[in-house]
């Protein structure tokens, strides 16, 4: 589920109080009222929207609430940090699902506060999918050897390696693969990830189950967009370079990079197969299990592809060279 705040983007207190109350891994998007008035039809479906009472007078607030109520799977509430609403009950009569009054902003919102609001609206269960959230990720160094962990897998590889070999030769291709693996280190670290296993064609990168830093799919999208620039500036290639990615979420036994040995994991096998057999040049594939990782703003760029090895997956639209 998306969480939006229609309010003053500079009101840090309001923003941080609300954000701390969200389920782990969720983020809050703040949109100024003027922008929201133009964008609500696009942004609000499937979202929980808080309207900042300090930015909207009561009439405008109820009018906007009425509009949001008409949208698919949209809930709205009011964040009233400054206590300007005289009778909060009128909001509920108009269909609001939540009201956060001034006392609630003096401390962190109670855990489960949001779930309670969703349940009250009758949407806590099947009606609106409340995403499963994972326990906070302890960090790679805190994991014990052979401990089973829930992660997001990403198989990343250089595209068109056969053609690359013909054009730059085996030796330079080997060096390019090494450079690419080194490049993926800082790239994945920006998303809290780690390069786990390297094979001849690509690398298996692990990310925490929920976003920690940049969203890894956005990071992959950036690489695919910038492929020509990266090929030229980073890898100093005089021929076109592209990448492809396969994302999957699942479990594996943890072993530190470099001493993984043979990993027996259905999910690891699947993501290797998806990345090596199904991904085309410049494509980002996402298994059904990892689809919750696709940010809303990229969702329309992914197209359902049917099944691969019995599991559904989607593929990103490809950019033209």
């Amino acid at each position: 589920m998306k969480y939006l705040l229609c309010g003053d983007p500079d009101d840090r207190k309001l923003f941080s109080a609300l954000e701390r109350g969200l389920p782990p891994g969720s983020s809050l998007e703040v949109i100024a009222p003027a922008g929201f008035a133009r964008n609500w039809k696009k942004k609000a479906p499937g979202a929980f929207v808080w309207l900042d009472a300090a930015c909207l007078d009561e009439g405008k607030l109820l009018e906007l609430g009425e509009k949001l109520r008409s949208l698919d799977a949209c809930l709205w509430g009011v964040a009233d940090r400054k206590g300007v609403i005289t009778d909060p009950a009128t909001l509920f009569f108009a269909g609001a699902a939540d009201y956060l009054g001034p006392p609630l902003f003096r401390s962190t919102l109670a855990p489960g506060r949001l779930e309670a609001a969703l349940r009250h609206a009758g949407l806590g269960g099947e009606g609106m999918a409340v995403e499963e959230s994972y326990p906070p990720f302890p960090g790679w160094s805190a994991l014990a050897r052979d401990e089973e962990v829930q992660v997001r897998f990403c198989y990343a590889a250089l595209s068109g390696q056969k053609e690359l070999r013909e054009r730059i030769g085996e030796k330079r291709l080997d060096k390019l693969r090494e450079d690419f693996a080194s490049f993926l280190g800082p790239w994945s670290a920006e998303c809290g990830g780690i390069v786990w296993i390297k094979d001849t064609a690509g690398c298996l990168v692990l990310f925490p189950p929920d976003d920690e830093g940049m969203n890894p799919l956005l990071a992959a999208f950036r690489l695919v967009l910038d492929r020509a620039i990266i090929g030229y500036e980073v890898f100093h290639l005089e021929i076109p370079l592209s990448f492809h990615f396969a994302f999957h979420a699942g479990k594996t036994m943890w072993r530190p990079p470099g001493s993984t040995g043979t990993v027996v994991s259905d999910d690891v096998n699947f993501v290797f197969h998806l990345g090596t057999k199904a991904a085309a040049d410049g494509e980002i594939l996402v298994s059904g299990g990892a689809s919750r990782s696709i940010p809303e703003y990229l969702r329309d760029l992914f197209v359902e592809q049917g099944d691969f090895e019995g599991r559904p997956f989607a593929a990103s639209k490809r950019f033209k060279d």
Binding site: G35, R222, Y297
Partner: peptide, 14 residues
């Protein structure tokens, strides 16, 4: 490229 992503993520113009 930056604008392509900006228009999807941060642009409030509508």
């Amino acid at each position: 490229h930056e604008l392509f992503l900006y228009n999807r993520i941060h642009n409030n113009l509508g």
